[in-house]
Design a protein around this nucleic acid. Structure first.
Length: 718
DNA sequence: AAAAAAG
């Protein structure tokens, strides 16, 4: 936050502290004002304008216009727009005034962080209680508004207008539209693109500016491709079913999988996705399939035994990287246009999961696919999906107002966007159109696209269901449905909408064949059993051997900390120069931590469901672009979010289960790079985290830590 | 219990 913001927060905090016997507010504007106490840790840690400038000048942190404003002090106007929403907030005026109250809340949380927080956000009740709180509620809203207010929005607005203009064009020429879309993608990715060298390659691609970002990922993958050569995967495909029984043998396969992992990187398209999906988690997923069961038994209501059985069956087949060697997309049945597009995207040869699932998808089968994030899952279903649509009804592809024939659902908006960035180019290569249908944004564009007619819908359950009920979206002609992060889509809250949506899709194709359902996830397990039994028919199950823990490039650590010292330890952990993602259990805590880090002079931002979509998108870009190197997020970022070069993942709160651990930790250690995952737990949670690690099949050192300890500094330096 | 997903 801008200094002033910080000041406001600090004041609020101080007030709280004062009430609790701690330092009083610094601001003379607040009750209990008291001169800042030099002895306070936070204050010391904060950077004053000069100090920050000095650091930036030294190159420690890229000097950025946005930040500079901060340093300057409280001129949000400058900052606001640019990037840090938070910074903007402070400047924004209303916010800050409001913030003070918030801060108070924040302060409280610090002591008992979460407890206080929960009330804040959730607590309309609190508001009434405290006068400040009343203000708070509004404030929060303001924040949402702020995002818009922020320069970013201003920027966006213009863009949007452009888009709108484009939309019309699209009607005329869809192709053009696509270009527009490409532009869009770029916008998002743009930040990433510049960074990536690959992007240069992208330029040629035109359509896929979006892809460029992916390419970066792809770059990583390329190396892996070498591994692909070994793939002979097809074999597995043929025998996959039988192989399922082989699972016991999987361990060996895993080794193969290790090879595969590299391959995944190759696929640019997936890379983006991969980012989102933790690759590593997937690795474990193989095992996870099993592990999940354990978890369920342990912490959650044991799923019906039958589920386990189904899971096993599903898990049975595994593709070995070596099996894919020498195979091409064309060999798998993918047409020339699509194959060329894939090559442009960096996917010159199929990864194991792709080689395993593509033939079955093209054969019209229902498929369950499990593979680490970044293993190429998006292309595994995206490419054959487009190919199938060509077969089904190419003749109607440009018909105005045509109903979509394919649907891809993801659990978060960010993931849906990433998927579209990969699938759109593929679809476009054969004259098909995709559109994103997700919440948090105006209906106009989405409805307009549907009216014009699209072929593939990529979105999240809520808005899809919403438009369905409004009569704007007709899924009766959808013959291929995909559930990404399928196990998560079966969670409470998602399952019913998903069931309703799937129920609205076609049962048979115009040719009389069964409509297809494809379920993919890095941690596919028995959780999808009910959905499988209701909507799938004799699905073939595929999984890609992944690196096992021993081959992981991630160093897992568990720090046992005193609750009262946790925030300080966190601040020290994220003070390093590397990109860091901090996972918090609640939105309030995530927000509070981000504010705390900013107050400490650390460039940080947040990502959680309390932010409006534009801010979510922008804040994520802040990290991918490097404008901030710390992102504090809830589990909204656990799956499907990819950011290059995240060197450290910190779990401020222990994950709920091993799946969450795997997905979160998968944000780092990508592309074979080194990564560190640090999980903070209170003494009382040691047993729980040990159980999670066991299920995830991860070995991690568990040590006590306090602010200032060498181990904290060591981990922060990574 | 929380978070996500519609507003």
């Amino acid at each position: 936050m801008a200094p002033y913001d910080k000041g406001a927060r600090q004041r609020a905090d101080d007030r709280v502290r004062h009430a609790n016997g701690t330092p009083a507010a610094r601001s003379s504007k607040h009750r209990g004002f008291r001169a800042a106490d030099p002895s306070q840790p936070r204050q010391k840690q904060r950077w004053d304008a000069e100090a920050r400038r000095g650091r930036e000048a030294q190159g420690e942190r890229p000097a950025r216009p946005n930040w500079e404003p901060r340093d300057g002090g409280q001129r949000r106007d400058d900052r606001g727009g640019r990037g840090f929403d938070r910074n903007d907030r402070a400047p924004r005026r209303f916010d800050r005034d409001d913030r003070a109250p918030r801060r108070d809340q924040d302060d409280r949380p610090r002591r008992f962080d979460r407890d206080d927080r929960a009330p804040r956000r959730d607590s309309d009740d609190r508001a009434p209680r405290r006068f400040d709180r009343d203000d708070r509620a509004p404030r929060r809203f303001d924040r949402d508004d702020r995002a818009p207010r922020r320069f970013d929005r201003d920027d966006r607005a213009p863009r949007r207008f452009d888009r709108e203009d484009r939309a019309p064009r699209r009607d005329d020429d869809r192709t053009p539209r696509r270009f527009d879309r490409d532009d869009r993608a770029p916008r998002r990715d743009q930040d990433d693109r510049p960074r990536r060298f690959d992007r240069d390659d992208r330029a040629p691609r035109r359509d896929s500016d979006d892809r460029a970002p992916r390419r970066f990922d792809r770059d990583d993958r390329a190396p892996r491709r070498f591994d692909r050569d070994d793939r002979a995967p097809r074999r597995d495909q043929d025998d996959r079913a039988p192989r399922r029984f082989d699972r016991d043998d999987r361990a060996p396969r895993r080794f193969d999988r290790d090879d595969r992992a590299p391959r995944r990187f190759d696929r640019d398209d997936r890379a983006p996705r991969r980012f989102d999906r933790d690759e590593r988690p997937q690795r474990r997923s193989f095992d996870d399939a099993r592990a999940p069961r354990r978890d369920r038994e342990d912490s959650r209501q044991a799923y019906v035994p039958a589920d386990d059985v189904k899971l096993e069956k599903l898990q049975a087949e595994a593709t070995v990287a070596a099996d894919v060697e020498g195979v091409t997309f064309t060999d798998l049945g993918i047409g020339g246009n699509i194959s060329r597009t894939l090559a442009e995207m960096g996917a010159t040869s199929p990864f194991p999961i792709q080689a395993a699932t593509i033939p079955d998808v093209l054969a019209g089968k229902d498929v369950l696919g499990r593979g680490r994030t970044g293993s190429g899952k998006t292309i595994a279903f995206g490419a054959p999906l487009v190919e199938k649509l060509m077969e089904h009804g190419g003749g109607t592809k440009r018909k105005m107002g045509r109903a979509p024939r394919a649907l891809i659902l993801a659990p978060t908006r960010e993931l849906a966007l990433q998927i579209d960035r990969t699938v759109q180019p593929i679809a476009r290569s054969v004259g098909l159109f995709t559109t994103q249908i997700y919440g948090g944004v105006p209906y106009g564009r989405q409805e307009g696209a549907l009216e014009r007619g699209v072929d593939i819908i990529v979105g999240t359950p809520g808005r899809v269901q919403d438009l369905m009920n409004k009569g704007k979206l007709d899924l009766s002609e959808v013959v291929v449905s995909v559930l990404d992060e399928a196990d998560h889509m079966c969670d409470l809250g998602f399952l019913e909408p998903v069931r309703e949506i799937l129920s609205a899709t076609a049962e048979v194709t115009p040719h009389g064949d069964r409509a297809q359902k494809l379920l993919f996830s890095a941690t596919l397990d028995a959780q999808v059993a009910s959905l499988v039994s209701e909507f799938l028919h004799e699905p073939s199950v595929h999984e890609v051997a992944g690196e096992d823990q021993a081959s992981s490039t991630i160093d897992h650590r568990v720090l046992v900390v005193e609750q009262r010292q946790k925030d300080q330890v966190l601040e020290e952990l994220v003070a390093g120069d590397g990109k860091t993602i901090v996972f918090a259990r609640t939105r309030a805590y995530a927000e509070r931590l981000a504010d705390q880090f900013e107050d400490a002079g650390i460039r940080a931002t947040s990502l959680h469901g309390d932010l409006n979509q534009s801010r979510r998108t922008r804040n994520l870009q802040l990290l991918t672009s490097g404008r901030v190197n710390v992102l504090v997020a809830t589990d909204v970022a656990a799956r499907g979010i990819h950011v290059d070069d995240v060197s450290l993942v910190v779990q401020a709160d222990a994950p709920d289960d091993y799946k969450a651990y795997m997905h979160r930790s998968g944000r780092t250690g990508r592309a074979g790079k080194e990564g560190t995952v640090v999980t903070l737990v209170p003494r009382g949670r040691i047993r729980k985290i040990e159980g999670i690690l066991e299920n995830a099949e991860i070995e991690a050192d568990l040590v006590q830590a306090a602010p200032g300890d060498g181990i904290v500094a060591e981990l922060a330096a990574r």
